[in-house]
Design a protein around this nucleic acid. Structure first.
Length: 605
RNA sequence: GCCCUUGUAGCUCAGCGGUAGAGCACUUCCUUGGUAAGGAAGAGGUCACGGGUUCAAGUCCCGUCAAGGGCUCCA
């Protein structure tokens, strides 16, 4: 709990509902902490704030490590506390007396927090009539009236968390729970969690044969035939889109001499994520000064390569803005514990590009990017929220430059009529940026698109162009991506659509299935017609019954299944069964179906 | 990298000290059936890997690797 002005309460919240939920969740965190201390009197408490949909409390029990098996016992104890219906009494206390208490009861984290607080100190007391004891916790509140209100809760998980989020400090155990005003809301939330689990991209990726992983290449996805279709359709479309927008595409090396990273600054600032190693061949013959050359590394970003391209010859202002697109393969050595499905990988590629431009061109370029972001995410029915991140405390470049750059971004945002927020100080040290949060069908936010200005990299590579004034100028670089890493974006799409991809994206768009052997020849004709029209169609002519084939096709989430029997063969028709609406199953001429589905197979942006 | 959990057949999982099981998938055969599982037979596992304890180890202990939940990082 951060210290705030006294009287932290209703006025600090945007709505009554938010305030009530805050009180409820925060109070339930107290109930959980009390329960843990009843079971483990030596438990040391750290912080216990409300979070999205619930709460947590960081706890340390000397000599004891809790596991998820311990949650039921804690829940049972919490239920007792709820039943006791203890009041929450917030009370100002004497700082020194409280400090002595906390030291005496071996609560080092509370003591540390207390010492960091200024102003009045309050303690929340929970007297229990049943036990006659009073449990208390240093806290600024606010709370609900009584523990009886914290009835509809559930403990969810347990995880490690560093004290103050600092890896050099002790690791505590974080107990997560959720709590809601009514039992219905709790049930709904649990249902939502289950729904999210069902559409987990890792699960669907396996079910639909989209991608796989192997122990021998952790963090590097294998794109299976179906998943490769998704990847290819997206990557190809982004490439064409950018080419239409005046970009040029390049392909650049993966492996570089360490000198590149020293120049870009990655060697000093990003080395822990950089895969690098000694070049064995070089090493054998190397002596003395050549020693420096033997380290090579896999690029984690495309920008340095593009700097080299820009700097490879004299440039004129007439060439600007120069927009270089590169879907190069990138490697970042993420912490082993951070890897997770397609969300956090070690190898990936992006719809990456760098725009080299003059300062005066920033606003126009950014405006175009905002339009592109709109167009792409609109096609996926995803909402985008936009923030401007301004100069951080530690930055490079003079203030006038930052003034002009931030102003240029604002001009672009305003010209597009965008309702954006500002995150002061959240920019990178090398330039301000625009952050995009895209929201999927379950309302979860993801960071995919990015637009970042960079004043430093061109300087590091000593880039320049000849201006209209015949003088040398340093270009500004805009790092930008619309979908970001294809890997992560496909992961988001899988969950957004729950695997029910729109026709244009679906790996398998149409599955032709025969009722019996008699209709196989006609089925083959239908298949050939579909494939000739450029559709991704497959054929199920197996000897299973039609019900079984439909069930299979349904499981693979194929948008259209065409049932082919003797009737259809005689009439030149197909019986259409749609994934998204199987209430109607019209039998229509093949040509009519073809017309309908080729329309849907067009990329909508 | 750190803490916790997990790792048994392609998939989902059971077995938890006495020398490997189920369902689905797969293969073969029968079946040619009109809208979400037709029938039969068969094949498939050095129980992640490496040590240790024990007369005996998927089963207990230690280590490694990987996955999951978090923390951290995200020049």
């Amino acid at each position: 709990m951060e210290e705030k002005e006294e009287g932290f309460g209703r006025d600090d919240f945007a709505s009554e509902e938010e305030y009530r939920l805050y009180c409820l969740r925060h109070s339930t965190a107290h109930v959980m902490a009390q329960a843990v201390q009843r079971l483990h009197p030596a438990a040391r408490l750290a912080i216990g704030p409300p979070v999205q949909d619930g709460f947590y409390y960081d706890i340390e029990i000397p000599g004891v490590t809790l596991s998820e098996d311990d949650l039921p016992a804690i829940e049972a104890e919490m239920k007792k506390i709820v039943k006791e219906n203890q009041p929450f009494e917030l009370e100002e206390v004497d700082r020194d007396a409280l400090r002595a208490d906390l030291v005496g009861s071996d609560q080092p984290y509370k003591v540390e927090m207390l010492d960091g607080f200024e102003g009045k100190i309050t303690v929340c007391r929970n007297p229990s009539k049943k036990t006659g004891e009073t449990w208390s916790d240093m806290c600024r509140g606010p709370h609900v009236m009584r523990t009886g209100q914290c009835k509809h809760f559930k403990l969810l998980k347990i995880a490690g968390a560093y004290w103050r989020g600092d890896a050099s400090k002790p690791q505590l155990q974080r107990l997560y729970g959720t709590v809601w005003p009514t039992s219905e809301q709790l049930q709904q939330y649990i249902f939502r969690l289950e729904e999210a689990k069902k559409r987990d991209h890792r699960k669907l990726g396996q079910q639909l044969d989209l991608f796989m992983f192997h122990d021998w290449a952790p963090g590097a996805p294998f794109w299976l035939p179906n998943g490769e279709v998704l990847y290819h359709v997206l990557a190809d479309r982004m490439r064409r889109l950018l080419l239409d927008e005046g970009y040029v595409a390049v392909r650049t090396p993966l492996l570089f001499d360490k000198k590149l990273f020293e120049t870009s600054g990655h060697w000093d600032h990003y080395q822990e994520n950089l895969f690098h190693f000694a070049d064995g061949h070089f090493h054998e013959g190397a002596e003395g000064e050549d020693h420096e050359h033997k380290i090579i590394g896999l690029k984690p970003m495309n920008c340095p390569s593009h700097m080299l391209i820009f700097g490879s010859r004299k440039r004129s202002y007439r060439e600007l803005p120069m927009r270089i697109h590169d879907q190069g393969v990138l490697h970042r050595n993420e912490l082993s514990g951070a890897l997770s499905g397609l969300t956090r990988v070690r190898q990936f590629s992006q719809d990456d590009a760098h725009i080299f431009c003059a300062e005066e061109q920033i606003a126009d370029e950014v405006e175009k990017l905002l339009e592109l972001v709109d167009r792409v995410y609109g096609a996926f029915d995803m909402e985008v929220k936009i923030h401007l991140s301004t100069r951080p405390a530690e930055k490079l470049g003079d203030d006038e430059l930052w003034d002009r750059a931030e102003a240029a971004l604002e001009v672009a945002l305003k010209r597009r009529g965008i309702d954006y927020g500002v995150k002061p100080g959240d920019g990178a040290f090398y330039g301000p940026k625009i952050d995009f949060d895209v929201f999927d069908a379950l309302g979860r936010g993801h960071q995919c698109a990015t637009v970042q200005l960079d004043f430093q990299l061109p300087r590091r590579f000593e880039l320049s162009y000849v201006g209209a004034d015949n003088a040398l100028h340093t270009p500004v670089v805009i790092h930008r991506a619309i979908v970001g890493s294809f890997e992560r974006f496909i992961g988001v799409l899988i969950e957004h659509y729950a695997g029910n991809f729109p026709v244009w994206l679906a790996p398998e768009q149409v599955r032709v299935m025969t009722v019996s052997e008699k209709s196989v020849p006609y089925g083959r004709e239908v298949l050939a017609t579909l494939q000739a029209a450029g559709l991704r169609a497959t054929f199920d002519d197996g000897d299973e019954k039609i019900g079984y084939k439909i069930r299979e096709g349904h499981g693979r989430k194929v948008p259209y299944m065409l049932v082919i029997g003797e009737q259809e063969a005689a009439d030149g028709t197909v019986n259409v069964r749609s994934r998204d609406d199987d209430s109607e199953r019209p039998t229509i001429p093949l040509a009519a179906f073809l017309e309908r589905v080729t329309g849907e197979a067009k990329v909508p942006f």
